[in-house]
Design a protein around this nucleic acid. Structure first.
Length: 586
RNA sequence: GCCAGCGUAGUUCAGUGGCAGAACGCAAACUUGGUAAGUUUGAAGUCGGGAGUUCGAUUCUCCCCGCUGGCUCCA
């Protein structure tokens, strides 16, 4: 049985061998396997850079190496031996130092032509490696791999270290699997929300505002419908919607700790004696509403929601379409509650998230993110908070994985991820338990049954995360064909010819009166062309009307997924479409 | 921010050191149709911005801006 991991790992070595062949003085970083393939990090001799053409050349060299039926063999070595072997490889020496500190067994792998006993660099490629290779390159299909991209990557992932150049490759057991992978990539590219957004006139990005979309009329409908949906759900779940200022004095974020941790990413400017900031977060401001009066234990839980517009000065290189923006709209909320209410609040949040995601056909996966390296507050409080989250997850019989050190600086969190139609993973909801930041730093209190002052806890949560990002995910998930309730245009009315435009207008008017988002197409083009246009705009329903329909007061229905359906009365169609919208069917 | 690539009409792209091009879209006219592209005509450009080299720069060089992929980051 071929082992894919071994194939990929071996290809990483062959890539390094190919690079060394062209640039013998290259310093090697590391070359592990990753989800679909492998990468290898290199530091080229001064003045040399990889270009896309190099990738073609390296692929060719690798194929030649594969065809030589090279053999992989490993050998255990001591730290001293390893240091000698890799004397001119600074990064390997780094690794040797690190591994010896951890008392790891070191080993070296050679890739040599068959029947060679000479292990010199002239005949064999040598790498410090813990193993996991094919025996012979015979096991590698020369046409089932491809070098895909060049990237910069810091040594050991640390920005303070030198930046190496990384070459990524994908690899599979068979050529067919590689082709399937490439086809999927094409599909992903076709579904790119930026392209769909432009084609469907939903939003645009303009040079005058980097990282902030301009929402056009049709896109705003999607945005608004989502907001409406979330508001309705929150109303039902006992939230009070609030709105706090976008621009506030810096001090409030110094108090919360955000300034300390995220100063680089906070937009701020001087105004007189004050420094004002555009809020990067709603949390601290929400406490002012909580603290505006004395709270009794009977007031809790107090669930304050805010569809907040936030600004974060994300580094330019991290921006991308709607997925990462500088102006972000969050479906945020802060739940102020007693310690004995944590479990039930989290349970209802898990249920709320499930209810919301189900509508879009998303399946959830759960992660418990624990205390990060830089954090506020006492370890004991963190332990308490993490324990509470674990209990809530277990109580709800939810399977979860641990995301170590991935918590917020003020508390651990439950992150909910979903998989989209193409199997890609996205993080959406976050449920954070804060026993420190807001409660302690903003001196929150409530009066208990005995009239004594107590400190509440705060659950920070978002279900969609950001509207911008969520819409991006939806567009890719549905390939632009949004569910009826979200579709900017729900129905296109197409009279077959000029003679039937007045009947078409009557149908259109009835739809509009019923609150349906409809469009009437005038008959300047052929019916076929207008159907094509409506299909390309991903309009869910096309109603064709002509002589037959006018006589019977009917509409002829065509659906974007089900194709042409039957002729029914206007009344029946209205009832049907209203029900589908109500049910949020997709 | 860093590494690599890219930036020409609304869009997708071709092209050149010497008058700026195609397709689709758009507009107008004709056509009045039965379930994915009817015909003709036309408008449309600071060739991302600035500087330099040159008789002449959209093309060559440098700087800046923006976009794409990746690294780091993501409260």
């Amino acid at each position: 049985m071929l082992n894919l991991e071994n194939i990929r790992h071996s290809l990483a070595h062959l890539l390094a061998a190919a690079v060394l062949k062209k640039y013998p003085k290259t310093k090697l970083g590391i070359g592990p396997t990753i989800e679909e393939g492998f990468y290898y990090d290199f530091l080229l001799p001064a003045g040399k850079k990889f270009s896309p053409d190099d990738l073609k050349e390296f692929e060719k060299t690798m194929r030649e190496l594969i065809k030589q039926n090279l053999l992989f063999s490993g050998k255990k070595v001591t730290a001293a031996e390893a240091k000698k072997l890799f004397a001119d490889q600074q990064f390997k020496l780094d690794l040797i130092k690190e591994f010896s500190k951890e008392a790891k067994q070191l080993s070296v792998y050679y890739t040599c032509p068959p029947k060679t006993s000479n292990l010199s660099p002239k005949t064999c490629f040598m790498d410090l490696c813990r193993g996991g290779h094919v025996k012979s390159t015979k096991e590698i299909h020369a046409d089932a791999f491809r070098l895909t991209k060049i990237a910069g990557a810091y040594w050991r992932g640390d920005e303070k270290n030198p930046q190496l150049q990384r070459i990524y490759g994908v690899a599979f057991k068979t050529k067919k699997e590689l082709e399937d992978y490439l086809k999927l990539q094409e599909e992903i590219e076709k579904r790119d929300h930026r392209k769909i957004g432009e084609r469907l006139e939903l939003f645009s990005f303009e040079e005058v505002s980097q990282g902030a979309p301009f929402w056009h009329g049709k896109g705003m409908i999607v945005f608004r419908e989502l907001e409406k949906f979330i508001r309705e759900e929150q109303d039902k779940a006992g939230y009070e919607e609030t709105s706090t200022p976008i621009m506030v004095k810096k001090e409030i974020f110094e108090k919360s700790g955000h300034w300390q941790f995220y100063r680089e990413n906070i937009f701020h400017f001087k105004e007189g004696d004050d420094t004002l900031v555009l809020k990067p977060m709603n949390c601290p401001e929400s406490t002012y509403i909580y603290n505006s009066r004395t709270r009794s234990y009977k007031d809790l839980p107090l669930r304050l929601s805010e569809i907040g517009r936030l600004h974060r000065n994300e580094r330019s290189g991290t921006l991308g379409g709607l997925f990462r923006v500088r102006q972000i709209t969050m479906d945020d909320a802060h739940i102020y509650c007693r310690r004995d209410q944590i479990q039930s609040e989290i349970s209802s949040l898990l249920k709320l998230a499930h209810k919301v995601y189900k509508i879009f056909g998303f399946e959830e996966r759960f992660y418990l993110a624990t205390k990060p390296a830089h954090a506020l507050g006492d370890v004991k409080l963190w332990q308490e908070a993490e324990k509470a989250l674990v209990m809530a997850l277990k109580e709800n019989k939810v399977k979860f994985e641990i995301a170590p050190k991935d918590g917020a600086f003020y508390g651990p969190k439950i992150d909910i991820h979903i998989k989209d139609a193409l199997g890609r993973d996205w993080q959406l909801a976050t449920i954070q338990l804060d026993l420190v930041m807001l409660p302690e730093r903003f001196n929150l209190a409530y009066i208990d049954e005995k009239g004594k002052k107590q400190r509440p806890v705060v659950i920070h949560r978002a279900i969609l995360g950001s509207f911008e990002r969520f819409i991006g995910i939806l567009l890719e998930h549905f390939a632009g064909a949004l569910p009826l309730w979200l579709a900017p245009v729900q129905v296109a009315v197409l009279p077959v010819g000029e003679k039937f435009e007045s009947y078409g207008r009557k149908v259109y008017d009835e739809l509009k009166t019923a609150g349906i988002r409809a469009e009437l197409s005038t008959a300047n083009e052929t019916l076929g062309k207008r159907i094509r246009e409506a299909e390309m705009q991903k309009i869910p329903y096309i109603l064709v009307v002509g002589e037959k329909e006018e006589e019977a007061k009917n509409v002829n229905v065509r659906h974007y997924k089900r194709g042409q359906e039957r002729e029914i009365t206007i009344g029946k169609f209205l009832a049907k479409i209203r029900e589908e919208i109500e049910k949020k069917a997709s």
